[in-house]
């Protein structure tokens, strides 16, 4: 069994060695298609991470023009905690807001020198339960009835739009990726067909000495799968190099503005899936090309 496997593998490798240009064309096609797919996947994954982190941080902020007296504040806190949609309520005093802002400015914190803590308003940060995010508007409306709460800010609408954008990006990625993979499949099929046309006499000779269809086809199937796997590895390498040299910089700069500091490459399972997808495209390409090519009898 192992001996047979090695025999077919060697035949597949020999086929590839004899048609280096066609093999390279198949590998290149799969590589380009999957690399583009990988770029999209990197973008989608990172934007997804961003929205996930935003969603976790999503809070309704009620700015208080005048910080309330202790008992009043406690009453408000108790009342808001009683809302079923609310996960937590935190009071941020003017002093705390001032400290946070200093921290966020980092090395530029000295800009605040000379300004007192009372330049920033106190606020209530109300975090909603993840499952209650759809009810943000209703919570805001309820909070708005307390006129003392002042201005209410929340990022829900913006997040919704961003999620819609993410959905669009994902859809475009899948559609474009699907199209590219399909194109790769067609090109791989035709490339393998070309090699089969060139070897038609050989295939005929094989059928005449008693080779079964599987015996003839298996090396070509292995060849297709190998080309696909190598194409997948090329895609992985290309996308990694592009990620290190271009994507991390450009995508990083865009996402940095939004608070994400590191851009991630594809996770390991996705990398494996990418290479496996290459193998699958190659295998399918060979399978389609071989249909009707190995004929034993002119029925």
């Amino acid at each position: 069994m192992i001996g047979q496997g090695i025999y077919f593998l060697l035949r597949a490798l020999r086929n590839m060695r004899h048609s280096p240009v066609l093999s390279a064309a198949s590998i290149f096609t799969v590589g380009v298609a999957l690399a583009l797919l990988a770029f999209f996947a990197i973008a989608v994954l990172n934007v997804q991470r961003l929205t996930a982190s935003w969603a976790a941080e999503l809070a309704v902020v009620a700015y208080l023009e005048q910080p309330p007296e202790g008992p009043v504040l406690n009453r408000w806190l108790g009342e808001i905690r009683g809302y079923p949609e609310v996960a937590s309520v935190t009071y941020v005093s003017r002093q705390e807001a001032y400290q946070r802002f200093r921290q966020r400015l980092g090395s530029d914190a000295d800009l605040l020198d000379g300004l007192g803590a009372d330049v920033l308003p106190a606020s209530l940060e109300i975090r909603l339960k993840p499952e209650a995010r759809q009810q943000t508007a209703a919570v805001v409306e309820r909070l708005g009835r307390n006129k003392a709460l002042g201005e209410l800010h929340y990022g829900r609408e913006w997040l919704d739009r961003f999620e819609a954008f993410l959905l669009l990006l994902r859809t475009v990625g899948i559609a474009l990726g699907g199209f590219l993979v399909l194109a790769a499949l067609v090109i791989v099929t035709n490339t393998i067909k070309l090699t089969l046309y060139a070897r038609q006499d050989e295939l005929e000779a094989m059928t005449m000495v008693g080779a079964t269809a599987l015996f003839i086809k298996l090396p070509y199937l292995i060849e297709g799968a190998l080309q696909g796997v190598v194409g997948g590895l090329v895609a992985l390498l290309t996308s990694f190099v592009a990620f290190r040299m271009i994507l991390r910089e450009s995508l990083g700069n865009i996402l940095l503005l939004t608070g994400i500091d590191t851009i991630h490459f594809l996770p390991f399972t996705w990398q494996i899936l990418l290479v496996a997808a290459g193998g699958l495209v190659g295998l399918l390409g060979s399978l389609l090309a071989l249909r009707k090519f190995v004929r034993f009898c002119q029925d």
Partner: peptide, 9 residues
């Protein structure tokens, strides 16, 4: 057709 290879052997 699947038996043809065996005949040709």
């Amino acid at each position: 057709t699947r038996h043809i290879p065996h005949l040709r052997r």
